[in-house]
């Protein structure tokens, strides 16, 4: 394991622990999560061609996208269900890591990276919900802004940076859009690549 510094050997190692080859050990939950992430990236990019963020345009553009644009409904639903799947699989992945004691040294750093990724994915899920731009998402955005506002001093500024100024009847703002479509996925992607690299460095299981 220690000799596998080469990138190719990293992806296709010469040796892997035989125990790690068992699917029942990991249930491939991390791999399924990453697959969902890739699906989300591709379908999300496609959605960006027709979705218009904004309090007044978000919901109506989504309705047009899902009901009028050819295959728009399918792409939207793929994005939605891949998102739902990913939230489920990352949580199960975390449970599995706890179950097999895989958070213990030498993997303690990768566990922390995983926790950060879980937070990112949940926040991506939440911002995606806001971008629907329905009345419910407006209520959700209002609650989030008010909770952040409780933080003394920083709160109101933080809410501005994370959510912009959502209206009570639509959570879709340009700020949320930028976080959801670019900033958060990029941070999540680089953390994931580090997460995978770290598995091998810690002598862990075989990736997908």
């Amino acid at each position: 394991m220690k000799d596998q510094k080469n990138f190719v050997h990293h992806i296709r190692p010469i040796f892997v622990p035989s125990k790690a080859l068992s699917v029942l050990y990991t249930f491939c939950l991390g791999g399924v999560s990453f697959l969902a992430f890739v699906v989300l990236g591709v379908t999300g990019l496609l959605l960006m061609f027709h979705y218009q963020p904004g309090n007044s345009t978000g919901f109506s553009s989504l309705l047009t996208l899902a009901s009028v644009i050819p295959y728009g409904g399918m792409i939207r639903n793929l994005h939605y269900w891949a998102g739902q799947l990913m939230v489920v699989t990352v949580n199960l992945h975390m449970l599995r890591v706890v179950w097999t004691h895989s958070y213990k040294p030498p993997k303690q750093l990768n566990w922390l990276v995983g926790v950060a990724l879980l937070m990112l994915i949940l926040f991506l899920d939440f911002t995606g919900y806001l971008l629907i731009g329905s009345q419910e998402s407006g209520a959700a955005a209002t609650v989030a802004v008010n909770i952040l506002g409780l933080i003394p001093g920083l709160g109101i500024g933080l809410a501005q940076v994370l959510f912009g100024e959502p209206s009570a009847i639509s959570g879709s703002t340009l700020v949320v859009y930028v976080w959801h479509c670019f900033a958060l996925p990029m941070i999540a992607l680089f953390l994931q690549l580090y997460h995978f690299w770290r598995i091998r460095r810690d002598g862990g299981v075989r990736p997908l």
């Binding site: 027709h50 996208l65 644009i69 050819p70 295959y71």
Partner: peptide, 11 residues
């Protein structure tokens, strides 16, 4: 389908 989706001017 992708071409249809991307070139749609319905919106």
């Amino acid at each position: 389908p992708l071409v249809q989706y991307l070139t749609s001017k319905e919106d």
